[in-house]
Amino acid sequence: MKLTLKIWRQKGPNDKGQMATYPIDGIDGDMSFLEMLDVLNEQLIHKGEEPVAFDHDCREGICGMCSLFINGEAHGPDRGVTTCQLHMRKFDDGDTIYIEPWRAKAFPVIKDLVVDRTAFDRVMAAGGFVSVNTSGNTQDANAIPIAKADADKAFEAATCIGCGACVATCKNSSAMLFVSAKVSQLALLPQGQVEARDRVLNMVKKMDEEGFGNCTNTGACEVECPKEISLDNIARMNREFMKAALCHED
């Protein structure tokens, strides 16, 4: 198929940036969206132009490195997939496709479609863990049975890939879905209980410092999340936060 690509080009963090138009031909429905961009880049290199910079790595929907705001939607029009798993059969011959980076104050653009998501790492470092050292003498893994339903819910929250689609989608650039997924995972498991209060307070505090916006319960993040992380996690985090804030001895 034949397509017209409108792509955000920005030389660096301080460049103003602009949309550029690239016609492209010979695109096959079985190609992934990123393979389509590979074809474009190969052509640009051949013509002596700068290829379009975009983040990607595993190309199987799990590393969370790829991003892209495609026709106004994080990871494009398909549901439950990342950009690397979006296939060109979702588009029609003659389509014009707009490709932009994640847009959020906390995710500054590095180049073209590549943004800096280290704010997520800093939120994680503020409390996204269980404080247990590697020792080789922790108790036996089956010592504490965990109800299957809780384990499954914790797992579902834990499948977040940290791609940032929730932030990019949210009109307030809120990171609540991301943060709540980790808070929920650990709050649902007995191992995470001991530090549950500090964890939620510290992670939320860091989230606010990093410049993410507030949650207004629109729910767009849940729709666009490639791992379909549930909004329930945000509710759970709010509950955890209230509980912690009320009981916290400071």
């Binding site: 863990f129 269980v130 247990v132 590697t134 020792s135 080789g136 922790t138 108790q139 036996d140 893994a141 089956n142 049975p145 965990i146 109800a147 299957k148 384990a151 499954d152 914790a154 797992f155 834990a158 995972q185 650990l186 498991l189 191992q191 995470g192």
Partner: peptide, 24 residues
Amino acid sequence: VSVNIIDQCVAQGVPFARDYGGLL
């Protein structure tokens, strides 16, 4: 050391699959 790995990961909160009795 394979046995220690499972213990360590569970202690970290890795949500392995469990059966209805709550065991791994």
